[in-house]
Simulated assay, not measured.
Amino acid sequence: MVKHTNWRAYREQRLREEMSAHPEYEQAGLDLRLGDMVRERPMELGLTQGEVAERAGITQPALSRIEGGGGIPTLAMLDRIAKAMHTTFTITVGDHAAA
Rank of each mutant, 00 (worst) to 15 (best):
M1F: 04
M1S: 04
M1R: 07
V2W: 08
V2Q: 04
V2I: 02
K3Q: 15
H4K: 05
H4A: 04
T5C: 06
N6K: 03
N6M: 05
W7N: 07
R8W: 07
R8D: 06
R8N: 09
Y10E: 14
Y10S: 05
R11K: 10
R11L: 12
E12Q: 09
E12V: 06
E12S: 08
E12M: 01
E12T: 13
Q13H: 08
Q13Y: 11
R14K: 03
L15Y: 05
R16M: 08
E17Y: 04
M19W: 10
S20T: 12
A21W: 14
A21H: 09
H22Q: 06
H22P: 00
P23L: 14
P23T: 08
E24G: 08
Y25F: 15
Y25S: 11
Y25T: 10
E26M: 01
E26H: 11
A28F: 04
A28V: 07
A28G: 07
L30T: 14
R33N: 13
L34A: 06
G35Y: 12
G35R: 11
D36W: 01
D36V: 08
D36C: 03
M37A: 14
M37G: 02
V38F: 14
V38K: 03
V38D: 13
V38S: 06
V38R: 07
R39A: 07
R39W: 14
E40A: 13
R41D: 01
P42E: 11
P42L: 11
P42Y: 12
M43Y: 00
G46E: 13
G46M: 09
L47T: 01
T48H: 02
T48V: 06
Q49P: 00
G50N: 14
G50R: 05
G50V: 00
G50L: 07
G50H: 13
E51D: 15
E51N: 00
E51R: 12
E54Q: 04
R55L: 06
R55F: 13
R55Y: 09
A56Q: 00
A56N: 10
A56K: 00
G57D: 13
G57Y: 07
I58G: 02
I58Q: 10
T59L: 06
Q60H: 08
Q60I: 04
Q60R: 03
P61R: 07
P61Q: 01
A62D: 10
A62C: 03
L63W: 11
S64Y: 03
S64R: 05
R65P: 02
R65N: 14
I66M: 03
E67V: 09
E67L: 00
E67F: 14
G68P: 07
G69E: 11
G69Q: 04
G70Q: 02
G70F: 06
I72T: 12
I72F: 08
P73D: 09
P73C: 12
P73G: 06
L75R: 00
A76I: 12
A76N: 09
M77V: 15
M77E: 11
M77Y: 12
M77A: 12
L78S: 04
D79E: 06
I81G: 07
A82L: 02
K83Y: 08
K83N: 03
K83F: 02
K83T: 08
A84Y: 03
M85F: 01
H86R: 08
H86G: 00
T87W: 02
T88G: 01
T90L: 13
T92F: 05
V93G: 01
V93R: 11
G94R: 02
D95R: 04
A97Y: 03
A97E: 14
A97G: 01
A99D: 10
A99Q: 03
A99E: 05
